[in-house]
Write a protein that binds this DNA or RNA. Structure first.
Lengths: 110, 110
DNA sequence: ATTTATTATCGTAATATTGCAATATAAACA
DNA sequence: TGTTTATATTGCAATATTACGATAATAAAT
């Protein structure tokens, strides 16, 4: 196998999983952190920042983009990337939901 | 390969990635949601809730536990699982950090 | 038009993940 | 002790992910 049984889960569960999975790699965390640090958008700089070859970085950027976590726009012959609030808002809601529960259940666990 | 180059990233980046990766599967999202729904702890019920075989569920529980997202305590011959705030607080902080940035940069992206 | 710079894609090797049947382990109880 | 119940582990097949060299594609600059 190796194949996730997405059919048996709800769209919401699959979407949240896809978002979390996209974030679940140190290189992609580093990309997100860098995009926050430099405030405005960047592109080939990300390749210089990361300890990975250009095709690998390109692949990671693609995954983040597919998940709706970053967006890129052409700027001359380069591409400017920045965070996409669409994806982040979706997970943010999930974590707020979890957090609300954790507050209520403090020290009441089994 | 298939091997993530964890050595080249910071401990924080690797830890956040591990947490997000653990959440990044619909079955594990479903487990988290169920633990929230039933409020107090449960165990074999999770197996009944999920459309997966017992060994598969056991594996998913193990991953969540290793990541510090759930904790289990023995209750007779059964095991009672519930959410572990340790793991969740760590990612929560990350998303708050991201969110703060997104608020500032609204519509100022490239 | 050619070169240069920037990013994406293809192909491929190595490793990781997912899922399950079979089996093991451990605790309660008869 | 033997049996039931609950969970974990092992072993394995199928698929996914990660990473990179080589190469393509695109657009600016000369």
């Amino acid at each position: 196998m190796g194949t996730t049984k997405t059919i048996h889960f709800t769209d919401e569960q699959n979407e949240l999983a896809t978002l979390a999975k996209a974030i679940g790699h140190p290189a992609r965390i580093a990309i997100i952190q860098h995009l926050i640090k430099v405030n405005s958008c960047i592109c080939g700089d990300i390749v210089n920042e990361l300890p990975l070859a250009q095709p690998t970085v390109s692949q990671h950027l693609k995954e983040l983009k597919n998940a709706g976590l970053i967006k890129g726009s052409f700027e001359g012959n380069a591409i400017c990337y920045c965070l996409d609030e669409n994806g982040f808002n979706k997970i943010k809601n999930f974590f707020q939901y979890v957090d609300k529960h954790l507050e209520n259940q403090k020290n009441q666990c089994c």
